[in-house]
Amino acid sequence: MSLLAQVDSVKAEALGALASAADLPALEQAKGAYLGAEGRFTALMKQLGSLPREERPAAGKTVNAAKAEIEAALGARRSELELRAAVPREPADFTLPGRRRPSGRLHPLTQVTDDIVRAFRRLGFAVADGPEIEDERHCFDALNTPVDHPARDAQDTFFLDQPSRPLLRTHTSSVQIRVMEKQQPPIRIVIPGRVFRRDNADATHNPTFHQIEGLYVDKGVTVGDLKGTVEAVFRELLGDDVKLRFRPHYFSYTEPSLEIDFTNALVRKLGKEWLEIAGCGMVHPKVFENVGYDPEVWSGWAFGFGIERIAMLRYGITDIRLFYENDSRFLAQF
């Protein structure tokens, strides 16, 4: 048989061997049998040199074309077998639960507080803070709360077991005094914080709870400014459909003093017309005098409310104690 005839038949055999290799090791074995150093096709190539000179170019071309064909077939079969080998033995069940990387949740009181703070900051307020252990001056006297005022009753306030009778602040208003003692107007602050009242815990009371209040002192501040800011904050907090009502009230540290009721679809769903939400008023001149501001020059307003109350309304929570139990199933809901 001529060399060229042998090339054709060995090529056909090689292609057949590659195609029938069932896995990658078998494929490599087939490759060795034909293209390896001792392979059959390699042996044919070695015979090229023994041909007459004039036959060599044509024969060389034929042999090379055949070799390229075998190598292409080898590459294609290898890719096919590799892909087959990579497919997992068992199919993945994509309906199985994934491997979770759970992120934690911020406490609902933190979330509500930050939302309120953000609403105030948008209006140019800075966040302020003060101590939770207070003295009577900052908590009551400077705020124009008379000695016989019920708020000062030991029944309602926690005192520390110390001779100077420090107390746990009953409202964040004590921070107003601390800031005004240190800074000159204009003042524009929002004060979130913990406060304490000597109430036994029940569905609506906890001895520890949170308040937030705003204080604005400048020249020419009016009740109109107060109403405008309160409305802006509550619209942001409770939605644009919220309606507010201001009722005259009494707080010792504001004059005039107002209570704020609100209503929206949620309130009406609760079967009520209005819900009380906050207290406010124009800072009492006596308070300004107590911190050394001239009430003839400066005017201002303050308003404050309970954070738990807002959170309970927002999420429909009916028991304040849930906030402090930190049940992980509760926390995971916010």
Binding site: R101, P102, G104, H107, V127, L168, N326
Partner: peptide, 28 residues
């Protein structure tokens, strides 16, 4: 305190991102 408030929120978010839920305990 205005700047402190932001850092406290940053710390809270950092810890929550590591999978911890935030608790608020009783002061008393």
């Amino acid at each position: 305190y205005d700047a402190v408030h932001d850092v406290l929120m940053e710390v809270r978010r950092c810890l929550a991102a590591m999978g911890l839920d935030e608790a608020q305990g009783q002061t008393l």
